[in-house]
């Protein structure tokens, strides 16, 4: 991307002010939406006070624990990284896009508070949105003449680990061929209550999401409501578990061949 030349924010270092757990009481990111008079956030089923966390606490430089290591490395604790909300102006084409986007939302009677946070990082813009009206937001992005994100590049799931609230994220990369822009939509859901890992399917808007949502379901167990045929796609149909979740081991799944079981690589030697 040509925009990558002028990143408006420098990536925060872990351990700095904006990346620790103290963020809990801070703004919900709707400040950025103030210009057009955002209504107060509606009562929704999942309404986190803080922006979606993206990361988990890391411990130990070498990942060691209980080894008797006295060097101090094992005691190193790095706080979780949270993407900082960006303030207007975002720089580049982002402001023009965002004004257009807010206007389009208003036209389609979508509450701007559906957008929880906007982050501009490394020349890319991320819109953290609530899942309830995701499909309408996508349709707006696709159909509005000032936005025209007619192409959905990629849908991917991300698991931020067992200790993180709203650990499962679905990330949509939309591309506007007309304006040559890319935006990222991110939706986060919880997994603790299995019934909760639901995200509306955008297949109606972007047909290409069909297999990609199936892959995200296959790998992360995210259920896409309204998908025409949500089945496993890469793993066998009768597979147990969701392999790309962080609490799913890399290997060590019993292989039915002469009783052999190979230890998972993450239980073998590791350096980091």
């Amino acid at each position: 991307m040509t925009e990558s030349d002028d990143p408006t924010t420098t990536p925060p270092q872990p351990g700095e002010a904006q990346s620790s757990a103290e963020r809990a009481g801070e703004s919900n990111g709707s400040d950025a939406l103030a210009p057009i008079g955002a209504e107060p956030a509606r009562a929704v089923r999942v309404a986190p006070a803080q922006p979606p966390p993206a990361g988990h606490e890391r411990r130990g430089m070498f990942g060691v624990s209980g080894s008797g290591d006295t060097s101090g490395y094992g005691g190193l604790r790095l706080p979780a990284y949270t993407p900082p909300a960006s303030e207007r102006p975002y720089g580049g084409w982002f402001d023009e896009f965002f004004d257009e986007f807010l206007a389009a939302l208003a036209e389609n009677q979508i509450d701007p508070s559906e957008v929880q946070q906007v982050s501009v990082d490394r020349g890319e813009i991320t819109l953290y949105v609530r899942r309830e009206r995701l499909v309408e937001i996508c349709r707006t992005l696709r159909d509005d003449s000032g936005l025209r994100f007619e192409f959905c590049s990629s849908v991917s799931g991300v698991d931020y680990g067992p200790d993180v609230p709203q650990r499962l994220h679905v990330v949509y990369h939309l591309l506007s061929m007309t304006y040559r822009r890319r935006v990222r939509l991110e939706v986060s859901v919880d997994v603790e209550d299995t019934a909760d890992a639901h995200v509306p399917s955008v297949v109606d808007v972007y047909a290409t999401a069909d297999w990609q949502e199936r892959e995200a379901y296959d790998m992360f167990g995210i259920v896409f409501d309204g998908h025409p045929a949500l089945t496993r796609i890469l793993m066998p149909d009768d597979w147990d578990g969701f392999p790309q979740r962080k609490d799913y081991p890399l290997g060590g799944i019993p292989v039915e061949y002469k009783g052999t079981e190979i230890p998972p690589p993450d239980e073998r030697r590791a350096y980091s």
């Binding site: 890391r58 790095l78 991917s156 991300v158 990369h173």
Partner: peptide, 20 residues
């Protein structure tokens, strides 16, 4: 279009690499 969506948590290993 061959796309890479990569997430880092600040460590020495990727948090997530998704390939489009």
């Amino acid at each position: 279009e061959l796309g890479y969506h990569m997430v880092s948590d600040g460590g020495t290993r990727p948090m997530r690499v998704h390939v489009r």
